[in-house]
Amino acid sequence: MSLIDFFRKKNSGDVAKDRLKFVLVSDRANCSPEIMEKIKNDIINVISKYMEIDASGLDIQLTQTDSESDNGKVPVLYANIPIKELHHSSRK
């Protein structure tokens, strides 16, 4: 093993695994990157009705998490939506 190999971040087996995980989740959900983009825009529209959000900082992804009921993994839609300001009118 060369010195370069030693300092290389990841070996190709791990790279394959990480790539596959994402591909499988989107395959299983029948959810292409185009659809994700649509979902993202819809979320922005809905949330914007109630509060001011930072649309450019919005992060949405389909991933997996440990199931609470059994030991398996379940798909989860993860969204991180930074809020700029809560509208005062929504609370009275």
Binding site: M1, N11, S12, G13, D14, A16, K17, L20
Partner: peptide
Amino acid sequence: MVKRGDMMT
């Protein structure tokens, strides 16, 4: 290949 990390286990 698995041993040197170049194949998934």
